[in-house]
């Protein structure tokens, strides 16, 4: 794994993200990652709140189109997250917080697909799924924020 990561990190694209120093490089990617996250996690949180009983009058069918936006946010963050990862591949790959974050994001996305199939298009009321979703996103956010601190601590 090591040589592959090092190669990724040395690639032209990764070097540009890390070292170009231009505002439309690393800072823009970081902003887009935050925008994607606030769209995906923000809308998902609002849906979770609805499933837990806040604004119970909102018909679920009316919220269906927000899924497209959430998937767009996910796609944006997969792309920007990929760029941010390769820019510091070896450092991120040795960071336990990074794996916690990835696992929680994966769980949260699976939970969202289940909310779609079992609650929006099924009989489930979705209270448990909503609680699980909030928990996964919470830990994912926390682990993501702590990555910088954990990596400093390791080195």
């Amino acid at each position: 794994m090591g040589p592959v990561l090092a190669q990724l990190e040395q690639s032209g694209l990764a070097t540009w993200v890390r070292e170009s120093g231009v505002l439309y490089g690393y800072p823009l990617i970081l902003f887009l990652h935050t925008l994607g996250l606030s769209t995906l996690v923000g809308l998902n949180t609002a849906i979770d709140l609805r499933l837990l009983g806040v604004g119970a009058g909102i018909p679920l069918a009316s919220l269906e189109r927000t899924f497209r936006l959430m998937w767009a946010g996910l796609a944006l963050n997969a792309a920007t997250g990929g760029l941010l990862f390769i820019a510091d591949a070896t450092r991120h790959a040795s960071n336990p917080a990074f794996y916690v974050k990835l696992a929680c994001v994966a769980l949260a996305v699976v939970t969202l697909t289940r909310i779609w199939s079992r609650v929006f298009h099924g009989p489930d009321r979705g209270r448990r799924l909503a609680a699980a979703s909030l928990a996964c996103w919470g830990v994912a956010l926390g682990a993501g924020r702590l990555m910088a601190y954990v990596s400093e601590f390791i080195q």
């Binding site: 606030s38 996690v41 923000g42 809308l43 998902n44 949180t45 927000t66 956010l141």
Partner: peptide, 9 residues
């Protein structure tokens, strides 16, 4: 996330 998600909705 709370602020942006609800405002967006």
């Amino acid at each position: 996330c709370l602020l942006f998600g609800v405002v967006l909705l």
